[in-house]
């Protein structure tokens, strides 16, 4: 999954780092990850996008490989699935050393 949002008229695509996704896992007693991938993407949106940014989560199956007109990609909101990045909690901000936001 990825995030997509409007960046000054051009669509920006946020690719989560696989290692960071692993870092966000919460394992149960059997070693299974209890956090859904969508929840992790929302966490990354809240962390990496400016607060209040409208974005959507798109599946990996969405083909973004043809970059011939990359600079012409635009973000068209789908109100049914569009989300808005929110603030992290103070504890989360501290854990990421985001002290300027505290």
């Amino acid at each position: 999954m990825r995030l997509i949002y409007d960046n000054s008229g051009v669509a920006a695509v946020v690719i989560p780092a696989p290692k960071f996704l692993t870092q966000l896992a919460v394992l149960d007693a059997d070693g299974n990850d209890t956090v859904t991938l969508e929840s992790k993407l929302i966490h990354i949106a809240n962390k990496d996008l400016p607060t209040g940014t409208k974005y959507e989560i798109i599946a990996d199956s969405v083909d973004l490989s043809d970059r011939a007109f990359r600079n012409a990609w635009t973000y068209t909101a789908n109100n049914a699935i569009e989300k808005t990045s929110a603030d992290l909690t103070a504890e989360q901000l501290a854990s990421y050393n985001m002290t300027e936001n505290l």
């Binding site: 946020v14 780092a17 970059r67 600079n71």
Partner: peptide
């Protein structure tokens, strides 16, 4: 992302234009 350390994401902004966001600031 082929490999990384202390990075939460990379944003594809445009051709030859990316933003690296750190996991821990």
């Amino acid at each position: 992302i082929l490999d990384s350390h202390n990075v939460s994401s990379v944003t594809d902004n445009a051709v030859g234009n990316g933003t690296v966001v750190l996991a821990n600031n």
